[in-house]
């Protein structure tokens, strides 16, 4: 049984989600203690419970009935991964994308195709938005041999949620290793302001300001009014390169000026464009698991975040895999290499 200390590293819900994914994939049960021990509300929250139930559903996993909100430890016993049509709902506009992330890789190993519909928040500030998963992460996963289609049926912003994503996952005969050491040539840079149930001019002002900051032509700035139950607004910039795509976004909220939202995104985009690492911090978090399952891979990224490091150490508990972080001369960047222990 793999034993994990939930208070280590990033100390939040990521360690649990990664453990669930790895447990389902490897068939190893695990025990986690001190779940979110250092947080203001320690233990499992609703969104973690949903991830737990989803993981259990796709692999016939078992855990004690008394695991509920506030639980600070649990044991999980995975069974066989089962393809199928699954539907999950996340409360409090919690991220549907994080639940998808938890079960996506295991379902690739099933012998039949699966269809998963998850409702909840598709655009939650505390998680990667749909566009990030769709445009940045999935192309890399496809490059490793996976056949996954993702569609956004409805936008769900905080706080109302009510969004819906659907993923179709085909069986995959083992993932291939992947190396993303440089971006390749620049192909596209566009900004899009998404909004629902708020005044149009907020989106316009965001776009106007970011176009000025990033010197974008008019054709590269799009206003996208979307259907959603509640109000919501996201400004996103897609930087498409030959080998990698980066999506950088921020959410507008009441009391924050449209120009300030645009400035935040612009600063982050500039930092990425000025750097030379191929992979941004968020994508780096997500690439470790598929590379570990593939048995190898590498990428360059800026200094690793606590999320990335937590994922690396959780992987080492389940698999004979090393994740090495090697500094690149004359920069803060690192090369991350995933390979089998010899």
């Amino acid at each position: 049984m793999v034993k994990l200390d939930g208070s280590e590293g990033e100390g939040g819900g990521q360690i649990l989600r990664s453990a669930l994914t790895l447990s389902a994939l490897t068939g190893q049960p695990f025990e986690i203690t001190k779940i979110r021990a250092g947080r203001a509300k320690p233990g499992l929250l609703r969104q973690h419970l949903t991830a737990l139930r989803a993981a259990a559903a796709i692999c016939g996993g078992k855990y004690s009935d008394d695991v509920t909100i506030g639980a600070t430890e649990l044991m999980f016993y995975p069974g066989d991964i089962r393809a199928g049509n699954y539907e999950f709902a996340v409360g409090t506009a919690g991220s549907a994308m994080l639940v998808l992330q938890t079960i996506l890789l295991p379902l690739l190993q099933a012998s039949e195709p699966s269809r998963v519909i998850i409702s909840g928040g598709t655009h939650n500030p505390a998680a990667p938005p749909f566009q990030f998963v769709d445009q940045c992460f999935l192309p890399q996963l496809r490059a490793m041999g996976a056949d996954v289609e993702l569609s956004l049926l409805q936008y769900g912003f905080m706080p109302a949620g009510g969004g819906k994503v659907m993923a179709t996952i085909q069986p995959c005969d083992g993932l291939k290793t992947l190396d993303i050491l440089d971006r390749g040539s620049s192909e596209e840079l566009i900004a899009e302001a998404y909004f629902a149930n708020i005044p149009f001019d907020v989106a316009e002002r965001e776009l106007g300001h970011i176009s000025k900051r990033l010197k974008l032509p008019k054709t590269a700035a799009q206003v996208r009014e979307v259907k959603s139950i509640g109000p919501g607004n996201m400004l996103g910039v897609t930087a498409r390169f030959e080998h990698v795509t980066e999506f950088i976004s921020a959410f507008g909220r009441r009391g924050t000026r449209a120009e300030d939202v645009a400035d935040g995104v612009a600063d982050e985009v500039r930092a990425y464009l000025d750097g030379s690492a191929a992979v941004g911090p968020h994508l780096a978090d997500q690439l470790l698991l598929p590379m570990a399952i593939a048995g190898g891979g590498s990428f360059t990224t800026s200094a690793p975040t606590p999320h990335t490091q937590t994922n690396a150490s959780t992987i080492a508990e389940f698999l004979d895999i090393n994740v090495r972080f090697e500094p690149i001369d004359k920069s803060d960047d690192v090369t991350v290499t995933v390979d089998r222990k010899i």
């Binding site: 509300k41 233990g43 929250l45 609703r46 969104q47 909100i69 506030g70 409360g91 409090t92 919690g94 706080p159 109302a160 629902a196 149930n197 708020i198 139950i229 509640g230 109000p231 009441r254």
Partner: peptide, 19 residues
């Protein structure tokens, strides 16, 4: 209207707690 989501509504908020 959609603006209702911009206000704290007690009966809805009770069901919005993550814990």
């Amino acid at each position: 209207g959609a603006e209702r989501w911009n206000r704290w509504r007690p009966s809805v908020a009770v069901c919005q707690h993550p814990d």
